[in-house]
Amino acid sequence: MNQALKTMVPVLETKNITMRFGGVVAVNDLSIQVNQGEIVALIGPNGAGKTTAFNVITGVYTPTSGDVLLKGESITGLLPDKITQKGVARTFQNIRLFKNLTVYENILIAKHLRFKADFMSATLQLPHARRMEKQMHTDTELLINRLGLQSVKNEIASSLPYGQQRHLEIARALATEPELLLLDEPAAGMNPQETDELTAFIREIKNEYNLTVFMIEHHMDLVMEISDRIYVLDFGVLIAEGNPDQVQNNPKVIEAYLGVEEDA
């Protein structure tokens, strides 16, 4: 319980967000809160609106109504790049790496947003731009070594095995120096061993970089093991929340996943 008291500073809050596409309500009146240092999972059956919720939070969509707050400041309607600059990084359900570039370049590019010189100073390599460029390279090297990617540093991103591509995508998100990391199905398509490795990896980076993690996931063993709290979404509506035990035993959740028993 001491833990709970310590972590009550909200990093991300959504206040009654609704996202409508024409007649379809993908997310309906969703209010969630993710506190500093927590790992929170968002689960739900296919088509429940989980990724839409992520896209609203990261600025891909502007919500039809409602408000998204980052550390108490409204980020509703900002463009994705602005939100990333404010310290929210994400990965994608279907991996979106810069496929034809090397692992090193992929991470280096994620450092671009902290580059403060204009393009002319950068092109002409003026002293201050040169210094910043050097810093970017140092930081990238550091991150690559820290996350164990040095052996594939010069490989083309698309040539990596699937698990490592996921790994790289998280590394690239970390390179933007986020406080809040959003992971969209990080374990999708992974075998149990890879999933275990991923669980350890997420814990590790969370502690090392002082992150708050909010993730969508289908692998229940991963979710139950790693999450402090879980939100369950079904047809765009929040149907349950709580710690893993509470959620696992919630009849509504069981119903959403397994269906209702028909009356005989």
Partner: peptide, 8 residues
């Protein structure tokens, strides 16, 4: 989309 998500 990825570029934008990386703050570009």
């Amino acid at each position: 989309i990825a570029a934008e998500a990386m703050g570009i």
